[in-house]
Structures are given as structure tokens and as C-alpha cells.
Simulated assay, not measured.
Amino acid sequence: MFRARTLAAEAAGAGDETGWFERLYSEAEAGSAVVPWADGEVNPHLVEWAAGKDGMGKRALVVGCGLGYDAQYLAGLSYAVTGFDVAPTAIERTIRENPGTTVEYLAADLLDLPAAWAGAFDLVVEIYTVQPLYGPVRERALAALHGPVAPGGTLLVIARATNDENPERDPAQMPWPLTRRELDLAGGPLRTVRVEQFMDSGTQPRLRWRAEFRRD
């Protein structure tokens, strides 16, 4: 996590709040850094939420898909999945490590999504990808999440949580948990179906949000 935090702090200071992701993945490809969230595991809170769901005939979008663990899982539930990440190196590695995948992996920026994606997906999944963003870009990213949700579709947000509505954020200490206000910003005009707050069961338990919003 140290290298990721260093790069994030440098990028925030330079006004390039998202460029550090590509640099981190590139350094990891060269063997000089580690991507701390590339643990090879599907998010367990997504697995719990998706239990019993059938994605046949539905389109899903995974925001900041990284190395594709969650996207591949949803494809296994018969969703037609698109996964995107702002880091082209992450996408290249994901395609290389998933030969024959049915998932469409693309390099794209949440702040400038393809126009064709507006209102196009039955399920949009965002897990831990906005938390590392700092400053104004963070709110812009949160406000962009509901855009790709189709009529009748769902936005699922899973994030670290805080009940402090005005938390101090040291640029060198990302990721920063989402406040309830930020969670509501992600939902935007969508109807709130369910908001859960709970402690996860990891080796270092942390407070989490799992929120489901729907476009009626």
C-alpha cells in the first residue's frame, strides 16, 4: 500500500488525481511495485448480494474493474459484462490472464464515459474504486456512477464506510471511506432500495457500506 499511497499523494499535489493508477499498474508489470487490491479474490460482499441471481439477458458494467475478478464472477452468473479501468495496463493484463473470456474489457475513464453507455446497463457495480480519489474529482466520479444505469436497472456500491460527515483526509493516507452524503451522491436521482452498514470479517475488520439504488 505504501507505493500506491505515495503515487496518489504525488498525483493529488500535481492535480492529476487519476493518472497514478496507470503508473502503479505499469510498475507492477515491471516487478517494482505491488497493486495492493490485486488479491485474486472476488469481493465477498458482491458474492453475498448476488446469491441466487441470474443475469441471463442482462448487461452489467463493472467500474474500475482492475484485473477482472468481479467482472469474471458476474459473467459466470450469465450477465453480459463490460469491465473498464482508467489504467490501460490493467486492461491489457486482464485480457492476457483471461483468455477466451466473454467479458468485454476496455480502457475508459469514469469521468468521460462513452455516450453509448448512458442508461445502457441493467447492473452497474462499483466496489472500492472511488475511495482512492481525492479532492473535487472524487465528487465528480461519484456523481457519474448512476449515468450508465438503464430504466429498471440497479447501481450497487460497496465501499469502506465512515459516519463522520466531515472527515479529515490526508493525501498520503488513501483510501478514504465514503460518508453517507457521498453514498447518496452516487445514487443521485435513483431510488434508494437498501443501504447496509456492517463490519466485514477480514483480518482487520472495517466498517463497510453496501448500497443498492434503482432507476424506476
Rank of each mutant, 00 (worst) to 15 (best):
L74D: 06
R191K: 14
V130P: 11
R140N: 08
Q197N: 10
G66S: 07
P44S: 08
V103C: 01
R194T: 13
T94I: 04
R180P: 07
G31F: 10
V193P: 02
L67D: 15
N98Y: 12
P167C: 14
A120D: 11
V34E: 15
G76W: 00
G187D: 01
R169S: 11
L106G: 05
A90N: 09
V125N: 00
E212I: 04
L178K: 07
T129G: 01
V35Y: 12
R140F: 03
F213W: 14
Q197G: 08
G152H: 07
R208D: 03
S201I: 13
T192F: 01
P132D: 04
D184G: 02
R93G: 14
P44C: 06
L207S: 15
T82M: 05
D54C: 10
D216I: 04
G187C: 11
E139C: 05
N43C: 10
V124N: 00
F121I: 06
L183H: 09
P136I: 04
W20P: 10
D200E: 13
R181P: 01
V47H: 02
T82E: 10
W20E: 08
E41A: 02
E29C: 14
D109L: 04
H146I: 07
E104H: 04
R23V: 13
D122P: 02
I158A: 06
A50P: 05
T203Y: 10
